[in-house]
Simulated assay, not measured.
Amino acid sequence: MKVLVTGTAGFIGFYTALKLLKQGHTVVGLDSINDYYDVNLKYGRLQESGIKQSNIEYGATVQSGLYPDYSFVQLKLEDKPALDALFEQEQFDAVCNLAAQAGVRYSLENPNAYIDSNIVGFMNVLEACRHNGVKNLSYASSSSVYGLNEQMPFSTSHSVNHPVSLYAATKKSNELMAHTYAHLYGMQCTGLRFFTVYGPWGRPDMAPFIFTKAALKGDTIKVFNNGKMKRDFTYIDDIVEGVVRVIENPCKASSEWSGKQPDPSSSSAPYKIYNIGNSQPIELMTFIEAVENAAGVEIPKDFQPIQPGDVVATYADVSELESDMGYRPSTPVTEGMKRTVDWYRNFYGMA
């Protein structure tokens, strides 16, 4: 297939593009390369994909020097005319939308950025798919949508009507928007709720990266909610395996779905929601120990109260991913953090 992957200078998008290429697909990558975090890391990922920073110019397609079937374009999803032109020119078979303004805490300070990228941008993707005959759409949602829900493990059959951050609200909105397009236009729309993704090339605003950096530099880390948090930390390779299986196996309408007892995760339209998580939540202090063991040092800790927008625990029920795709994540945190720390040392010249 020819697949558009948005967010390919980002963490999950970078890996997804490479995995699709290895599977024999043609990939067009797209990213705005915004400065939400260090752009050098974004350009580093692109360089790893054969896309040279010096060749990147807004709106122009750049051919990878490493992968003949990979090209990249810097574009904002909010730029509707340019996005429409790209769709018309390329005629994609499938679209995987992983571009978004990420981060829970940042959404408290910069709410408009989330509406522009996650709502307006996603709307433009839906419309471009609709007008160019793209039926196969997968997109990133988030475990954040579970919000105030305390029923564990989090199941896609649970209600997600009580988000605690605008970021989560935009992801819930994406799911609703996708269902509308699945119902009205027969687009096969699959949403993927990711659970605390970590690994080499990870995001520097997330705990695994922050803890690794602190361990290797001797800095103190802030431990929120006094360490009494649980997270379903999921290794990047496990996430991407799930994403690619979904792209290659677009969802179908459910013949068993009933409007009298509506299941939120499926529909009479070709619409589906999956959790992708390790399904083994661990306490924050246990995770910090895994970082310390991988780095060979103890990290000084500053215990803090819980932050606005944070949830106390996440825990993915991945039974539907397993039954439909024959797959469940399995990488243990000890192994995943060892690889992450090794990458960090190498990338930042601390080997």
Rank of each mutant, 00 (worst) to 15 (best):
K2V: 03
V3S: 03
V5G: 04
G7V: 07
G10W: 06
T16E: 05
L18N: 14
L18C: 08
K19T: 06
L21E: 04
T26R: 15
T26Q: 15
T26I: 15
V27H: 01
V28A: 08
N34Q: 02
Y36S: 08
D38L: 14
V39P: 06
N40W: 10
L41H: 01
L41W: 00
Y43F: 14
G44Y: 00
Q47M: 07
E48K: 12
I51Q: 03
Y58L: 05
Y58N: 02
Y58M: 04
G59A: 03
G59C: 08
Q63M: 05
L66T: 03
Y70G: 03
Y70A: 04
S71H: 11
F72M: 10
V73H: 03
L75S: 00
L77I: 04
K80Y: 07
D84A: 13
L86T: 01
E90G: 00
D93I: 05
V95E: 11
N97K: 08
A99C: 09
A100Q: 11
R105D: 07
L108F: 11
L108C: 04
Y114L: 02
D116A: 12
F122L: 13
V125P: 07
E127S: 02
A140K: 05
S141C: 15
S143F: 08
S143V: 05
G147P: 00
G147V: 00
S155I: 01
S159E: 10
H162A: 12
K171F: 02
K171E: 02
S173G: 06
S173W: 09
N174E: 15
H179G: 10
A182E: 15
A182D: 13
A182M: 15
H183K: 15
G191Q: 04
G191Y: 09
F194Y: 14
F195K: 00
V197W: 09
R203Y: 01
P204M: 07
D205P: 09
A207F: 15
F211I: 03
K213Q: 05
K213R: 11
G218P: 13
I221H: 02
F224N: 06
G227V: 13
M229A: 02
R231C: 01
F233K: 09
T234E: 14
T234A: 15
I239L: 08
E241R: 02
P250E: 08
K252E: 13
S255H: 15
G259H: 04
S265Q: 09
S267E: 08
S268N: 11
A269E: 06
I273L: 14
Y274Q: 05
Y274F: 15
N275V: 08
Q280N: 12
Q280D: 08
P281F: 09
P281A: 03
I282N: 06
L284H: 11
M285S: 11
T286A: 10
I288D: 05
E289R: 14
A290M: 13
N293G: 06
I299E: 13
K301P: 03
F303V: 06
F303Y: 15
I306H: 04
Q307R: 11
D310K: 02
D317T: 01
S323I: 01
D324G: 03
G326S: 05
T331E: 11
M337I: 06
V341Y: 12
R345M: 09
G349A: 05
G349R: 07
G349Q: 09
M350T: 06
